[in-house]
């Protein structure tokens, strides 16, 4: 199977999201133990979301390095300011985690 996607676009979206989320003072990695941590960090979920969101806009027909860069920036802003409002930590889990 041939990958027809432009790998560089994904890397740009990933790098933009990682760098901006670190600038926005999100931690690089979730707290330990990571498997039970609810912390929103640069690597998870911001980086994963950035390439996923770029895949979505790319499939909708918007491709290119500028689109990738914009997607990365918007993803970092989304992870920092909006994500926890849309999918909050469930009540009672703050103490548990």
């Amino acid at each position: 199977m041939i990958i027809h996607a432009n790998v560089f676009s994904y890397l740009i979206a990933l790098a933009a999201a990682l760098i901006l989320s670190l600038v926005l003072r999100l931690p690089l990695l979730p707290d330990k133990p990571m498997r039970t941590s609810w912390t929103i960090s640069a690597v998870f979920p911001t980086a994963v979301l950035s390439i996923g969101f770029y895949a979505m806009v790319s499939e909708l027909g918007y491709q290119g390095y500028i689109v990738a860069l914009t997607t990365g920036i918007i993803t970092a802003l989304f992870a920092k300011f909006i994500l926890e409002k849309i999918v909050p930590i469930p009540e009672g889990d703050e103490s548990h985690e």
């Binding site: 990958i3 996607a5 498997r35 979920p45 996923g52 895949a55 499939e59 469930p90 985690e97």
Partner: peptide, 24 residues
Amino acid sequence: MPEGGLIAAVLVYFGNRICADPGY
């Protein structure tokens, strides 16, 4: 490939968070 898998990862992440799971 690979768009499908990447989009699925995002959708599963949101599904996880809705279901009281951190999503890893």
